[in-house]
Write a protein that binds this DNA or RNA. Structure first.
Lengths: 165, 165
DNA sequence: GTAGGTGCAAATCCTTTGCAAGTGA
DNA sequence: TCACTTGCAAAGGATTTGCACCTAC
């Protein structure tokens, strides 16, 4: 069993909760994505494996994953929550193209340090920081030295087009 | 008439829209706040001046204000949109206390420059950047060298507790 | 006169909750 | 056993839309 699933079950145990087949399946699938899945996206994928699972269980399990520290909730301005597994990259931020909805992930240690020091100077104790840059990706801005805009994918899920470390 | 209202009416004109008494009132009130008002907060205040105005008009006018570049939409994780006038501070970010809901505004030219260069290196053209740091303010973290946590205010609106320039 | 605006009620969309029937420890 | 789970349907809460009536230009 992966260390992430172990962490998940440790969380369940500590909280007096139970291990179930549904949670097993949902967590397995979730941990193997690195998309920014919405609850409904995940629901659709999970249903392919077990058509009897309900939306509600997806919502509840995603909440557990966040509590267990295995997932982060992100919002890109389309009015729905998306989730990303924390096991891929410990923390990263997003450039969000408001035209094609693709996202570019990046991580900047300098920004993080800068923001930490700003928080510290106000006596603030951060638990989470979120940086989002909205705008046009190179393709949508018509920059011909970059890829052309992608067709919107089947699920309407933003594709990740790159990770800048 | 303030330059902001002029800008608003210029936007209406360019878009072929009309000036109305309702828009006048809503814009006047909005531009004189620096709270992070939700649509409903603004609705309550506006109704004190004109009880006949409907929620819908508030929603629609806030949207116009954003389009006109006079307001920014912000979300603090409580599932509702809040708006701040752009005439006070051109741009700023937020430390958000997840216990007492107060926010501390700050502006960091260094962060902005850093993020601009990250965006540029990906060929991304930013239109808006949003930095949010969630955590505990000094008071809620029990830091006695700072103010004690505030009573939650009447409207449940996060109070601004400071602006770091 | 006419395109655009307004307020109301109804509709939407995402998410949560109540509940009766299951199920893991 | 029994507290925790599940799926369904209904409820919720924020925001949007349809519509008949009004109003700025």
């Amino acid at each position: 069993m992966s260390p992430e699933k172990q962490q998940f079950y440790r969380h369940l145990q500590r909280a007096g909760l139970k291990r179930t087949g549904q949670r097993d399946l949902i967590v397995d699938i979730f941990l193997h994505t690195e998309d920014h899945l919405s609850s409904e996206d995940l629901y659709r994928i999970v249903k392919e494996q077990d058509a009897s699972i309900g939306q509600t269980t997806i919502y509840r399990t995603l909440k557990l994953l966040v509590e267990a520290g295995l997932a982060s909730e992100v919002r890109f301005g389309d009015g729905r929550s998306r989730y990303e597994p924390n096991n891929k990259f410990p923390h990263h931020d997003h450039l969000i193209c408001t035209t094609c909805n693709r996202t570019i992930e990046f991580y900047s240690a300098e920004s993080k340090a800068l923001l930490d020091s700003i928080a510290a100077s106000r006596g603030f104790h951060p638990t989470q920081q979120s940086i989002r840059i909205f705008g046009l990706c190179a393709a949508c801005a018509g920059d011909s030295s970059h890829d052309s805009p992608p067709a919107i994918n089947k699920r309407g899920v933003p594709d990740v087009i790159g990770v800048a470390k």
